[in-house]
Design a protein around this nucleic acid. Sequence first.
DNA 1: ATAATAGTGTCTTTCAGACATTATCTA
DNA 2: TAGATAATGTCTGAAAGACACTATTAT
Lengths: 240, 240
Amino acid sequence: MTKAEETRFLASYNIHNYDIPMVSADAALFTYHEAAIKILLVERQNHPDKGKWGLPGGFVDKQLDQHLEDTVLRKIKEKTGVVPPYIEQLQSFGSAHRDKRDWSVTICFTALISHQSCAPHIDTVSDAAWVPLQKLEQMNLAFDHGAIIELARERLRQKALYSIVPGYALPEKFTLPELQKLHEALIGKPLQKRSFRRRIAAANLLEDTGEKRSEKGPAATLYRLRKNSAEFTFTRNLEE
Amino acid sequence: MTKAEETRFLASYNIHNYDIPMVSADAALFTYHEAAIKILLVERQNHPDKGKWGLPGGFVDKQLDQHLEDTVLRKIKEKTGVVPPYIEQLQSFGSAHRDKRDWSVTICFTALISHQSCAPHIDTVSDAAWVPLQKLEQMNLAFDHGAIIELARERLRQKALYSIVPGYALPEKFTLPELQKLHEALIGKPLQKRSFRRRIAAANLLEDTGEKRSEKGPAATLYRLRKNSAEFTFTRNLEE
DNA sequence: ATAATAGTGTCTTTCAGACATTATCTA
DNA sequence: TAGATAATGTCTGAAAGACACTATTAT
């Protein structure tokens, strides 16, 4: 009875009868390259805010996308050619005013990727670029993307204090001094080498590749992130 | 030039020309009453999943709501008669399958409220009820609301380890033993009284009301949450 | 008086901070 | 050989864990 009723209901349901907001998904994709944290920005080809730079993203495509993540991964792949090893939902932003067209909702994700894995494809795309976070202040970004980046950055800063998630912004193989410099860049102040290493070793978060690399001093060991090391959180933060 | 172009674009833009997902907002509203953590559930009056219980929530109303939070606060007020003192975005869930009607996105919020402040109104509403978390296992909730509650619960458990946010599920005035029991219920194991109190005192998160209350022993001091104590996070977690 | 329990004293344990030291690399 | 820097030794300090103890309330 109720089942048949529901079937009739679903058959007559038409979303176009309702006045509903737009839905898009955007990505704050970070990397670490040449001692700087950078974010991938895209120049808008269409109205509104045409010509301004903003986060890669776009409308959910009900045919192409099964989940919200599919939308954003599709867009990231368009620009970088690859799928990032770390992606996590940041927050959704929705209001009547954030987009001139209509009431709009965007589901935002934070993602991390190595610079090198994007390099081949990104060089062929003219409307996408890695922008150092320090340069953002002078830019007038599309929509509320400036505020979104600010939130993503703050969340990533927190993660640098109690996890090694930032490591996903490095190449597959990296050294401990590199990882520490990245964390320091996110936090904005130097860290104690001893503390930084002690806890990573104790939690067994890295795998020794057996390789070493040297620049201006003794060779540093190359590590890679262990499976699931993104899920690990220390119960005590490093000093802020 | 571009400005006039944009104006023309906006004038001709009609959202109904596009095939877009449904957007709703839902709330996981928790309280603590009679030694149990409870969540507010609502019996669905309409298809789909008619008759099942689920989270309070509904479609974004472009006329009534300016922000996503407005949608969920409007729905909470319908059921409880009041606006909760704590609300925070949890996560958005979106997929082609989670709702039988169509591709659907829901932006979920976690909220906390005292049981007493809801009592007058909720008793007049027949389709809303406080359900102890332990009873949820036997229930077959609407949509993916079971999974959403699970995530909300886990996030709240984490907060119990490094903040006093759970305190918003208590009445305005409460005792330290009450707060500790709530945290213990969320964490699922006993806490050290000394540690629990020491850090709250050191961070000056509570205000002494000057009142006391006694049941089976010496009178306990009644405190209230200080302004902004939800924002405070300890840099070290209690033992899990 | 007794049981219950709010609140405190204080010792131990854990882990981050600080910083010196040693070893190893390039130029 | 000098300067840089990777890696480690080790002491200090801050804050949580453990648990005993005192004080206060209802019955």
